[in-house]
């Protein structure tokens, strides 16, 4: 199967409109690990045959890390130019695999003039399964112990706790919870622009505290739905030298792998 990744500019040139815009995000575009998540999601989109598009080279940072770091000017520069672009393409529905992009576009763009139906890829995938557009059998994850790490910007910030878990259960996997989960989930340590600087001095790194908890569940896979969590958890696994027994995978990857896409 040849993979299609149409840009919205190409599509518009042909006089067509995408059903969804896949907002890839900076990590999904540049981070080697998260590019694999982008590709997994693209494979799923191709498989179900939905009419989607990406912004491609026109995409730009949502401004989330700048805003959380206190730089409101830079955030609004980003936000207002992104909104200008999105509105010029008359974008209606946006799907993204990044909870930070999701939260910003969904909750913070409206009062700056950007009103879209914004969906995190976990909710989108869940919808696809529920409506029968995407069929999963579980494949290699059947019966495997999988734990899910709640991203703060998906969970507490937007109350999305069930969609990611439903996906894991759809794979017929054995979902095990960490002690701190859902509303009480422990942050990976990267939110609030921490991703872009060293942590303040303390006794421990937050991601180590978190990965220890994940390892305690004896899960073979730690599922995540956020690029920053992905980096932090993967670093944690490396630090604990558990790369051979514990894998950190995104929800879209779980589905793509189980369906051998």
């Amino acid at each position: 199967m040849t993979m299609q990744v149409p840009t919205i500019a190409e599509m518009k040139a042909k006089g067509e409109n995408p059903e969804i815009l896949f907002w890839v995000g900076c990590a999904g575009s540049f981070d080697d690990r998260y590019k694999r998540v982008t590709i997994a999601f693209i494979k799923i989109l191709n498989k179900i045959g939905v009419k989607f598009a990406v912004l491609g080279p026109e995409e730009s940072c949502t401004g989330d890390p700048a805003r959380r770091a206190g730089n409101e000017f830079l955030f609004q520069m980003q936000a207002l130019s992104n909104i200008q672009l999105l509105n010029s393409y008359e974008v209606k529905k946006i799907v993204t695999a990044c909870p930070h992009c999701f939260n910003t576009i969904k909750n913070e763009y409206p009062e700056l003039g950007g009103n879209y139906d914004v969906v995190h890829h976990s909710s989108y995938l869940k919808e696809l399964i529920a409506s029968g557009k995407l069929k999963v059998k579980g494949g290699e994850f059947k019966g495997k112990k999988i734990t899910y790490h709640d991203s703060c910007y998906l969970g507490r910030a937007n109350n999305i706790y069930e969609a990611p878990r439903d996906l894991i259960e759809a794979l017929d996997a054995d979902l095990v919870e960490m002690k701190r989960c859902k509303t009480k989930g422990l942050c990976c340590g990267a939110g609030g622009a921490q991703m872009f600087k060293d942590a303040e001095s303390g006794e421990k790194e937050v991601n180590i505290e978190r990965i220890e908890e994940a390892i305690d569940t004896k899960a073979e896979v730690v599922a995540a739905g956020c690029p920053f969590c992905m980096t932090m958890l993967s670093d944690g696994v490396k630090n604990k030298e558990k790369e051979n027994s514990v894998k950190v995978l995104d929800l879209a990857e779980l589905i793509a792998i189980s369906e051998s896409l």
Binding site: V5, S29, I39, G56, P57, E59, S60, C61
Partner: peptide, 17 residues
């Protein structure tokens, strides 16, 4: 246009991969 020091022209390179 990204928090990391990658050129904007590289942004869509993943599609070539």
């Amino acid at each position: 246009a990204a928090p990391w020091a990658f050129a904007p022209t590289e942004r869509f390179k993943w599609s070539e991969d």
